[in-house]
Amino acid sequence: METFSYVKAPSIDKALSAANQAKFIAGGTTLVDLMKLRVETPQTLVDINLLPLDKIEKLPDGGLRIGALVRNSDLAWNPEVQKSYAVLSQALLSGASPQLRNMATTGGNLLQRTRCAYFREPSAGTPGGYGCNKRTPGTGCAAVDGFNRTHAILGTSDQCIATHPSDMCVAMAALEAVIHVEGPKGKRSIPFTDFHKLPGDTPNIENALEPGDLITYVDLPKPIAGSHSVYLKLRDRASYEFALASAAVVVRVEGGHIRYARVAMGGVGTKPWRSHEAEAALMGKSANATVFRAAAEAALAKAKPHKDNAFKVELAKRCLVRSLKLATA
């Protein structure tokens, strides 16, 4: 591991002023791991665990404000989240292990980096190492022609096909969360679908954060009255594994017809994959298997499989159909 200097920030202002050439560290579950692999080599670590961002609060408009330092397990087991945002609780509890969930934070989970084995290889993006445009732009992508069973089928480019690994983010995409950020230019808020970036020609740029930005809160809108939500995750083993395909759905059915639908998918996209196509295919239709299958076809219409991951296309469709059946049962 490269050496670094360590400072503990007692306030948000102090954290922001120390942010130059630094990485913020909270739970450390991604960052420490990647520092050991020399994927991350920060000069300075700013410990933000003292900041007052560890609360879950009801907002006056009926929404929920989640502090960036709220641990994944606390968020998953929060009674309000379990009652009104079940999809988020289910997604969190399907991710990682209990130990990691006790450490990992809401803000850190938003910034979780891909599990692409080429990206995680210490020498990737260096001379003699695997090509990785995410590590070093212009060095190519070893995964495109390599072993790519777990890689993405939606949102890829010829520069990068790395899957976004988070479960929490998939649920937040379906819940239309809003991310609040504080940085050198002041405060701003970012709609969830605008936060993560498609790889395109710049897979090294993964999100809308600018240097020195600190995630402070994630706001969930007021729960949709009468809706049901489900997170369904399919993977190689029943627990402690990343998704091959997952679906987060929030639906409201009235008189047999779908009046509200939000759909996001995980394990298949280069970012948490909100599917407006599936939502359009569901709205106003009857809640039955034919309609669900049509929505799944729409969601995966632009899927682009590679050598080892063609199975994900059908798997993702069935995952979405099953999750819609569960949510409307």
């Binding site: 360590y6 503990k8 560290i25 450390g28 579950t29 420490v32 791991d33 050991k36 670590l45 410990d47 665990n49 397990s73 292990s97 209990p98 130990q99 990691l100 006790n102 450490m103």
Partner: peptide, 27 residues
């Protein structure tokens, strides 16, 4: 594993279990 994948390093911090391999002592 030293990467938070095996759990052999599990300890309790303030009563909660964590992977001690993924946390710096200075924190």
């Amino acid at each position: 594993c030293d990467h938070g994948q095996c759990g052999a390093c599990t300890v309790h911090v303030n009563g909660r279990r964590v992977n001690s391999c993924l946390s710096f002592a200075v924190m």
